[in-house]
Design a protein around this nucleic acid. Sequence first.
RNA 1: GCGCCCGUAGCUCAGCGGAUCAGAGUAUUGGCCUCCGAAGCCAAGGGUCGUGGGUUCGAAUCCCGCCGGGCGCGCCA
Length: 544
Amino acid sequence: MAVDPKAEIQAALRKAVEKVAPGQTEERISALERPRQASHGDYSSSAALQLAKARKSNPRELASTLVDAIQAFLPPGIATLSIEGPGFINFRLDKATKTDVIRHVLMAGKGYGYVKKEKPVSVQVEFVSANPTGPLHVGHGRQAALGDALAALIEAQGDKVTREFYYNDAGAQIQNLALSVQARKRGLKPGDAGWPKDGYAGEYIQDIAAAYQGSVDDLDAIRTFAVAYLRNEQDIDLREFGVKFDVYYLESSLYADGKVDAVVKGLTESGKTYEKDGALWLRTTDYGDDKDRVVRKSDGTYTYFVPDVAYHLTKWRRGFVKVVNVQGSDHFGTTARVRAGLQALNTGIPQGYPDYVMHSMVRVMRGGEEVKISKRAGSYVTLRDLLDWVGRDAVRFFLLSRRADADFVFDVDLARAQTEENPVYYVQYAHARVCSVFNQWGGNFSNLGEADLSVLKSDRELTLAQRIGEFPEVVAEAARELSPHSVAFYLRSLAADFHSYYNAERILVEDEALRTARLALCAAVRQTLASGLSLLGVSAPEKM
RNA sequence: GCGCCCGUAGCUCAGCGGAUCAGAGUAUUGGCCUCCGAAGCCAAGGGUCGUGGGUUCGAAUCCCGCCGGGCGCGCCA
């Protein structure tokens, strides 16, 4: 088992800080940073600067004291220390330490970057959750990419993840869908006299009407048919996008099982409700919401708030200790009240439950202009449009290359460019290139693990090895911060390091020892690229 | 009006609760294939990090004001 140099240094640093400044247990004091400038070493600590402030002493002297302490705790042969600048302690890893990771990756194989937990936690990621009233739009695409990647990242941290899709199959929107299809079946068009008030205008309504063979007067049959039709259509798109769900949860089941009534009862018994204007209200403001919410309308029916709370209560009851909901920022308003409703039930659900990953809107640019509508959906661009234009890998990679809360401009022309520069192909190409080297070589992989890595001495080789070594940390942080985009950026960097190396040095050299060591490095690159792409749901082709 | 988010190179965006943080891609310009895949590499130009204050030894990063943009503020879902 290879050592984890960062962990070793971290541990030594913590002990040193504790020794020099007992009681200073603040996490950030003993934080290790990765300097951007290579001349500043591989890791650096600003502990001396931070401690100097509190102790009113000279930072460089303090750094010197810390260095002595660290060296006493740090096993030999890992790194050398120096004090630079105003008092930074910089660590330079020994070459052998840097290349050690290669052996580790080859041993771990597909497990590299993955954590095995003794006690996995049950986690749920809920995403897409589109109501079956139309084709999936690009925002759903962003949710699908985000949710699936988040699930994969959390799984990589050793937890057990359930991917769930929640939808409303019985509400007012579904009624409008049924009425729209019925009207189409009767030959009406949007805008005609008699067209339903909140009817759906998209062309797909006509498709459903044409496919429906039953009685035009049987609204229940039309509703059932239309829901099944659109659910199927959505599933086809999701399948092509490579997203699979473990559970489809129906809102109607919450009513059928009495869960909605039970929540109303629970809220009432909590003492946090009151009657006003003939309606039943919940004091969600007691839990951080900006205004109280109606539970039961004056006409006796419930607001959507109730099934929402009931649904999230089932998540907790089903044993999901952690829940991540991926939603568009237009659903922003629901987060505070769902959390408030869960708190009011007083069932021991933690305060921040559930987590939300909100993403901002996606704008689609094509041919220098913004695309706002699609023929099929009418008022919006669909996920299907994107898939048809640029393919699954490009859609996934692009949608994951931005922070979720950043506005997104999807440049279709850039994404579909296969002969020009394209961020997706850049990473995939690196993978295909490594594979190509191995094909050319044609040797036996099992020997690579015994390669003498000490012959890898060039800066590019050490940089590449170190980059590979960062992968587990990148994955862990992306999972912790719920930010898959950092994996996409990491892969870009790894691919860049490899391309640069490939152009500078020949892999298949005459010298057998050197060749074997370089191939071992390449094998580690390939494994890391493949694992990273897999986390994002993007394929790692052997040929392109 | 109130709440949350965003404002970084011509364009699209990273910058992990400060320091060793002015970065990547793209676009533009100039080099590199008789040799493992040129969907690649090497290099150049390009930004008072929206703006004005504050805190600090140090601010793109933290705090406050302002300007600009997005989303949300229903007895709709």
